[in-house]
């Protein structure tokens, strides 16, 4: 039943002759359709884990298996929503999505089907009205939505998101979280999302993976969030399961694995 598995993943970087071990023995099994978030203090190695799964970085030890096959290069079946959206600024919103669709689904769908699929994905994130705009003409929240549409349009097996809402204001963030939950409910994608927002992690995830501080960071604890879906943020505020999960994560981050004061 395991869909994606990280097996004893470790990585070291050598910079100016000095080698630092950033990750050690990261072990994680994820089921199909599961929404997993990765939480930990900044600099511990969350992005590094995600980049290894994406194939953008190579693990020094261990490896990643997707449906039993080893991952060793980037590919569209593991689509990435980057932290800073990474839309190509010379293309319009629609062209950004089209670049992905035309490349990835060229052999799977006819030209007309691809046009329709592009529009479908723009509609999925409510960006149809701004399809002709260029990235610099739209807000940060809209850019992230386009980034999500581009990733979803690749029909990925796994959706990887690196702090997708990190740079947004609280209201936009809440709105996009709701949209993401809705999309996840409909498409049942497997998702790994990095966040440093405890509420976001609890609200969205089936499981929360908490990482210890680096160097040699690893998974400290994994917490299941047995809340029924669809989840409504207002109803959850007083839900004991929700408040308990939230307390667990806070306890992990700020009591047992508090960040050394220097870095804050």
């Amino acid at each position: 039943m395991t869909h994606l598995s990280l097996e004893q993943v470790g990585i070291s970087f050598t910079r100016a002759g000095r080698t630092t071990e950033v990750l050690r023995d990261v072990d994680l099994k994820i089921d199909k359709g599961e929404f997993v978030s990765l939480i930990g203090h900044s600099g511990c190695g969350k992005s590094t884990v995600l980049n290894i799964v994406a194939g953008l970085l190579k693990a020094s030890t261990g490896g990643v298996l997707l449906d039993g096959k080893e991952v060793n290069s980037p590919g569209p079946e593991r689509a990435v929503v980057f932290q800073n959206h990474s839309l190509l600024p010379w293309l319009t919103v629609r062209e950004n999505v089209a670049l992905a669709v035309d490349k990835v689904l060229r052999s799977k769908k006819s030209r007309a089907e691809r046009r329709e699929w592009i529009e479908h994905n723009l509609a999925l994130v409510n960006m149809t009205h701004a399809a002709e705009k260029r990235p610099h003409e739209i807000s940060g929240g809209m850019k992230q939505r386009v980034g999500i549409a581009r990733a979803l349009a690749m029909e990925p097996k796994v959706l990887l998101m690196d702090e997708p809402f990190g740079a947004l204001d609280a209201l936009t963030r809440a709105h996009l979280q709701d949209q993401l939950m809705e999309i996840h409910l409909r498409l049942k994608n497997t998702v790994i999302m990095i966040t440093h927002d405890v509420d976001e992690a609890v609200l969205l995830s089936d499981r929360i993976v908490m990482m210890t501080n680096g160097p040699s960071a690893t998974i400290g604890e994994v917490l299941s969030v047995p809340l029924a879906r669809p989840r409504k943020r207002l109803e959850l505020v007083e839900d004991p399961t929700y408040t308990h999960a939230r307390a667990e994560v806070l306890e992990f981050l700020y009591a047992r694995h508090a960040k050394p004061a220097i870095a804050a």
Partner: peptide, 28 residues
């Protein structure tokens, strides 16, 4: 930017597509 290279890598653009669709416009 490394971000654009990452996008190209995830999409598996070949050398020619990368040149025409990312390098040239980015460096234009």
């Amino acid at each position: 930017p490394q971000d654009y290279r990452n996008v190209a890598a995830v999409l598996r653009l070949n050398a020619f597509e990368f040149f025409a669709k990312v390098m040239l416009p980015s460096a234009a």
